[in-house]
Nucleic acid binder design. Structure first.
Lengths: 210, 210
DNA sequence: GTTGGGAGACTGACCAGTCAGTCTGAAGGG
DNA sequence: CCCTTCAGACTGACTGGTCAGTCTCCCAAC
């Protein structure tokens, strides 16, 4: 019985070290960017060793990709849930913006890595990032195309609008990363959602407001 | 006479080499990003030598900053001209967006460097970039504040709107950098301007349309 | 001769990754 | 129970390739 529990303890020790390395790497990468970060910084921050780092990860690149891929998967999943729970353009857009903003707010280091460092990393890093953005464009575009069909907004280049929306959200988060304002970040939810909806010609009617 | 011409040739020879280095550096940095670019790549691309590069520039950082600062100064100047020539929210926003979009279109490598690589470069590179963005925020915000006062758009957080606009423009350009679409980039001028104006609640009246 | 522009070999700090060795816990045998 | 063996988690000194910057030399013009 006690022996069985101790056996279970061993894998979690392993997971603990790996987790420590990843968390430390997130801090180091967010602080210095990928290329200016050295593995020895991660070693120091994690309180482990060079060998331990390379026991769990094949390379510095793999550490980085583990971080961003995990985060991208989390965001994608939460977005999926948000989409399923929302009906109508307002609710859908609110849910999407809220998911993104709250995620960034909760993970400041990852927000920095994903928004600033990831795009500037080499071409071999870009596949997953482009996939995440493409997924987001498709989600937003889906909302907009349906709203056009329902006559809720005028016909337009919904793809361009989706990209513009993503850019707007990203820049608001980048401002927060640089200045700490607004505090908390999710104060921008209502005005930003309003601005995005307005940008595509959506007019909130009195009936819709209720 | 011939000797005098040759004398004049010497300074331009010097400018020619420096120009070649800068142009080559722009290509290399845009292709690989700052940190993955090596000075020897710039040497090869410019057809000069290591010695020549360090004759004109103190460091790799200085090459980079020369590029981005020159570009920022150009953009700032063109924006100033555009501002002076425009009256009224529509014209002002059109002029600003057109200046930015056309500048990026004309300098694809610099667009990549400025939008993607510069933000991810180290903290010591960020002063001028933040200044350029701040200047742009002030310009846009100025338009919006005036439009609020004139009752043309509803009262709102004009600073947030300005950042959202900058993000939207940036993402549209980033899409173009990644996909080549739209071709040419300035096809987005009219729809993007419309989207931005709409986002702040500006409704083009029939009288304003004339 | 002097000066300026430039070439390219060289230097030494840096750093991703390697690997011989250590430590710890578990299992098995006496 | 104690001892031995083994596997796996981990350590940290080391390696060698990289690369920003330096330095010496060359050449041409005056």
């Amino acid at each position: 019985m006690a022996t069985a529990i101790e056996r279970l303890g061993r894998p979690s020790q392993r997971e603990e070290t790996r987790r420590k390395i990843l968390e430390s790497a997130a801090q180091v990468f967010a602080d210095k960017g990928f290329y200016r970060s050295v593995v020895d910084d991660i070693v120091k921050a994690s309180g482990t060793s060079k060998g331990a780092v390379y026991f769990y990860f094949d390379s510095k690149e793999q550490i980085f990709m583990s971080l961003v891929e995990d985060y991208a998967a989390t965001v994608a999943q939460e977005l999926q849930v948000a989409v399923h729970r929302s009906r109508g353009l307002i609710a859908e857009v609110e849910a999407t913006v809220a998911t993104l903003i709250r995620n960034f707010q909760a993970h400041r280091t990852l927000a920095k890595i994903v928004l600033v460092d990831w795009p500037a990393a080499g071409a071999e890093f870009q596949g997953k990032r482009i996939a995440l953005k493409t997924m987001l464009v498709e989600v937003l575009r889906g909302y907009l195309d349906r709203a056009v069909q329902d006559g809720k907004i005028p016909a337009q280049d919904t793809e361009m609008a989706a990209y513009a929306w993503i850019g707007a959200i990203g820049e608001i988060v980048a401002r927060w990363l640089n200045t700490g304002k607004p505090n908390p970040l999710d104060e921008v939810l209502a005005p930003l959602t309003r601005l995005l909806l307005s940008s595509v010609g959506f007019v909130a009617s009195p009936a819709a407001a209720r």
